[in-house]
């Protein structure tokens, strides 16, 4: 089975900066790493491959240095890697990204399963997986926390807060993996070293038979008007008395004073 995992490179640090003009994340000069949720997606793809055979292809879209996250995918055990990198792709929002990825998946041909992480930790949208499913016209299972494949029927559970939902679908399909789905291990030093000896295929817009108006900025209707960092409020911590009875009385009084009880 040909399985694709779409992965994203995110800044290593949590100290993400925003461009004051474009309101986009500043990614230049920041050490990158694979989006942590995508590790669950790769792990899930490798598990399916172990069950039914085939190959796992990792795909990422972005500038040349996104090669790093693809090598992490190879170090986890993916068979090959494709980087979608071209000026025409720059400035893509989730819609243009989804379109570009779906064109790459079409070009690969005979893909039966596409995995995504549930969302990226930098932009947190979680939209690209579902958008790709729509472009391909395939059923989708988002936030999968369990997955079983029998013949061509995929069954998975979605955990949505207190609610659990079981979904069954037929291949080909798109799955976004939640972090409950599996527990990816650590990269093996040998695999890290080997991943840097593997070739990475680079595809540009001319390789994809894509509509140029759907790529990059022209294919991106999203306008980011304002991005705000949540304001940090520093508040005093009040410690309750050590005597449990007094502590309970103090807590009751404090909550009552704020009209919370």
């Amino acid at each position: 089975m040909k399985i694709v995992v779409c992965i994203k490179q995110v800044p290593e640090s949590n100290q993400v900066k925003l461009d004051p003009v474009t309101h986009n994340l500043v990614r230049q000069g920041v050490a990158g790493k694979i989006n942590p949720f995508d590790r669950h997606a790769i792990q899930a793809a490798l598990a399916i491959k172990a069950q039914v055979g085939g190959e796992v292809i990792v795909i990422s879209m972005g500038p040349a240095d996104n090669e790093y996250c693809l090598r992490e995918g190879l170090a986890m055990g993916a068979d090959r890697a494709i980087l979608l990198s071209a000026r025409a792709f720059a400035g893509s929002d989730t819609l243009a990204t989804g379109y570009t990825l779906s064109q790459a998946i079409r070009k690969l041909g005979a893909v039966e399963l596409v995995f995504f992480g549930r969302q990226a930790v930098d932009a947190d949208t979680g939209q690209v997986g579902p958008i790709v499913a729509e472009f391909l016209g395939w059923p989708q299972l988002t936030l999968a926390s369990s997955l079983t494949l029998k013949d061509r029927r995929l069954e998975g559970m979605r955990r949505l807060g207190d609610l659990e939902q079981t979904v069954a679908l037929t291949l080909p399909a798109v799955v976004t993996a939640s972090n409950d789905l599996n527990q990816p291990g650590y990269l093996q030093p040998r695999m890290i070293k080997a991943s840097f000896q593997q070739e990475i295929t680079v595809w540009q817009e001319t390789d994809l038979a894509a509509d140029p108006l759907r790529l990059g900025v022209s294919g991106s209707p999203t306008v980011v008007r304002k991005v705000m960092a949540p304001q940090r409020k520093q508040q005093e911590t009040v410690f309750l008395a050590t005597d449990p009875q007094q502590a309970a009385l103090d807590l009751h009084a404090a909550l009552h004073a704020k009209n919370l009880i």
Partner: peptide, 14 residues
Amino acid sequence: TAAQLMLHQMVREF
């Protein structure tokens, strides 16, 4: 190097 950085990230997490 990129390979050393990836190793470092793995070891730090471990």
